Amino acid sequence: MVEFGAAVLGALAYFVRARPVFAGILPERHKYEQLLVICVLVLVVGCAAVLAGARRA
């Protein structure tokens, strides 16, 4: 569920990247560079969630 939430939040961040909430986080670059940053963050959160879940089991 954490990975799905991160992916949905990443998609939302890309579509509303001009809003002040996300504009402060994302670099002021081309939209594809912003998308790259969002994708890397989603991958990091997803991997961290999988590793945290693997330690519990």
Rank of each mutant, 00 (worst) to 15 (best):
V37S: 07
R29G: 03
L43H: 08
M1R: 15
G46R: 03
A23T: 06
V45D: 02
I38L: 13
A6S: 06
V44I: 02
C39K: 14
I25C: 08
R56Q: 13
V50C: 07
A11E: 06
K31T: 14
Q34K: 14
R19C: 00
V2Y: 09
Y32L: 15
A13E: 07
V45K: 04
I25M: 12
L12I: 08
I38Y: 14
R17S: 05
E33H: 04
G10C: 08
A49Y: 02
R29T: 09
K31D: 01
L35Q: 00
L26M: 02
E28M: 14
V45W: 04
P27F: 05
A57Y: 15
P20H: 02
L12K: 11
I38E: 02
A57N: 13
L36H: 09
L12S: 08
L12V: 11
V44N: 02
A54Y: 10
V40Y: 10
K31N: 02
E33K: 00
R29Q: 13
A6Q: 07
L26N: 01
P20N: 09
F22P: 11
K31C: 02
C39D: 12
K31M: 07
A7Q: 05
L26W: 04
A18M: 08
G10A: 07
H30K: 13
I25R: 08
A49W: 04
F4Y: 15
L12M: 11
V37D: 03
L26F: 08
V44F: 00
L43Y: 06
C39W: 15
V16E: 14
V37N: 00
G24D: 06
L26K: 07
V50P: 02
A13N: 07
Y14G: 03
L9V: 08
A54H: 11
L35S: 02
C39P: 01
A7E: 07
V50Y: 14
I38D: 08
E3D: 12
G24N: 07
C39Q: 12
A6N: 07
F22G: 01
K31R: 14
V8C: 05
A49S: 09
H30S: 13
G46S: 11
A57L: 14
H30M: 06
L43K: 09
C39S: 08
L41Y: 10
L36Y: 12
A48R: 13
R17D: 01
K31A: 04
G24C: 03
V40E: 04
C47P: 00
V50I: 10
L51N: 07
R56V: 09
L9T: 03
G24I: 00
L43T: 11
E33D: 06
V44R: 05
R56W: 15
R17A: 01
L9H: 06
A18V: 14
F15M: 13
A6C: 03
C47M: 09
L36P: 06
P27Q: 03
F4S: 07
A48S: 05
E3I: 13
L35V: 00
R17E: 01
P20V: 13
L36V: 04
A13D: 10
V16A: 12
R56M: 13
L9E: 09
R19K: 02
K31E: 07
F15R: 15
P20E: 11
A48N: 05
G5D: 09
A6Y: 00
A18I: 15
A48T: 06
Y14F: 12
A6E: 12
I25F: 14
Y14N: 01
R19E: 03
I38P: 05
L43E: 05
V40K: 10
L12W: 15
F4M: 09
V40M: 07
P27H: 08
A18Q: 13
P20M: 03
K31G: 06
A13Q: 08
